[in-house]
Design a protein around this nucleic acid. Sequence first.
DNA 1: GTCTATATTTGGATAGAC
DNA 2: GTCTATCCAAATATAGAC
Lengths: 203, 203
Amino acid sequence: MPSQAATPNTGEQQPAARRRNARRAQILDAAWELARRDGLAAISLRELADRVDMRQPSLYWYFPSKAALYDAMFAQGFAQLVDERERLRLPRDPIAALRAGCRHFLEFCVREPVRYQLLFQPSVPGFEPSAESMRVAEVALGYLARWLAAAGAPDRDALDLMRALLLGLAGEQIANEPGGKRWIKFADRIVDVVIETPRRHRA
Amino acid sequence: MPSQAATPNTGEQQPAARRRNARRAQILDAAWELARRDGLAAISLRELADRVDMRQPSLYWYFPSKAALYDAMFAQGFAQLVDERERLRLPRDPIAALRAGCRHFLEFCVREPVRYQLLFQPSVPGFEPSAESMRVAEVALGYLARWLAAAGAPDRDALDLMRALLLGLAGEQIANEPGGKRWIKFADRIVDVVIETPRRHRA
DNA sequence: GTCTATATTTGGATAGAC
DNA sequence: GTCTATCCAAATATAGAC
């Protein structure tokens, strides 16, 4: 997992700030590694510090609390999603574009199950993302909303349904057959459902 | 939540065993209560013991470990689902029956979010249900499989898809609007998808 | 910025008397 | 069956020197 967007990183940075951000990114990388191995909730600051050749209290110079660490991971995860979506080369046809975008989203989820859990499931007992991190999450959701609107489904129901069905497929794929396609192969089918059925079901 | 099926309860029971099972059920009830308040992973054996007027070590006479407590909750949750499904009065028409069964499932999930998390999400860090508990879970899944088969979708794909879409709706409903219908109102629509689309999508 | 040392809390689990 | 007493491990967080 690339250690991008560990910090807003907007504008110029003094060398000191640059080094600090690089170290933060390094810590985040190690945190994801531990999360992959033991689960998100089981990240230990002691072991995390070991991985980056630090003593545990030194982490507090980079993150004021463990919750802040989770929050940074949360924001980083959505920043990665936004970044990948920005780089996608989508077909011109809006429906084909929506399909491709959804397929990418499913692949994004199953590629890193632990990231999926942090971003889309209430996975860490006491953790709630900060308002700033939620904004990044909403930016990511905006892409799906625009793809849907371009494909002829601009309403809230379509977005709700699309999100739920995609997360349902991703969740089952990850829980039951990580690495396979038994669930995510239904991607195109559910896209058709969302953009086709509103006419027939006048709820 | 009724404290049923705390224990297999098959055959006759000596009075001593009966009292023990009643106490187990009482402990389970209190555990669900704590889970609702603080989350599943945050259940503390000390506070749990307080709730049933015991000292913490006494719990170990009823459950050999905390994992065993979670396992009993897991089995109990699925037993409740099976029990409710057994009592359902379904329409004769197989498609209408499938719809009703799915609507009930969604209602079952949103009625007790913490139970949904334990049964259908990897919610407690180290917990894995025992083989015996998994059998109860499979019995529950069997109902959905039979309803689908009767409605003309006997294949594995239909069951996979149905499960994923239902869990997707339930998960979003619980996460974003507990108590509402913004997602579960799509129940009938996704049922139609699963039983109608196989023809058109020859995957 | 990073360290040592430590505070503080909390948790699950066990031993053994009664 | 239930208790008291205790163990042991692990965690986050803080204080303050350098």
